[in-house]
Amino acid sequence: MRRLDERNGLEYYLWLFTRLSAILMLCAGAAGIVYANLWGRTLMDAPAQYRWAFFPIYWHVQNTDVPDVFPVWSNAFWRVWCTILLFLASWHGFNGLRVVVEDYLHPPVLLILVKGFIGLLFMFVFGAGTVIIFEWF
């Protein structure tokens, strides 16, 4: 394992977050496939199962033969699940973008501006996704 010194505490915790969120997202994907096969094996086609495992929002099962979407595929449990997953995924993704940008972009002022822009994009995408989950669920 990589050893990091004390001064880079924040960077270490972000590194750790990337690993932990990866584990959680892998488990969420596996759980989604298992759930889709338990409840909709004969009703959902493969792309619907893949979309559901990727992000368990009821839109992702709508265009299939599933008869009644709401009791099984759309409830408070999945809203909370989706919000957690959206937070993990967007933070993991935009933090990854920051790491890539820091590797290739060297002027300090420009770097601060671009990192600020990445933060704005994160808030924008996370906010829009949360509205989708709670407003039009």
Binding site: W59, F94, L121, A128, I132, W136
Partner: peptide, 23 residues
């Protein structure tokens, strides 16, 4: 790994924003 990570970020962000704006 980097290229696919950036690909997911770009495509999924576009998908989320498009779904938001469509609604």
């Amino acid at each position: 790994h980097r290229v696919t990570g950036l690909g997911i970020l770009l495509l999924v962000s576009v998908h989320v924003m498009a779904a938001f704006l469509m609604n």
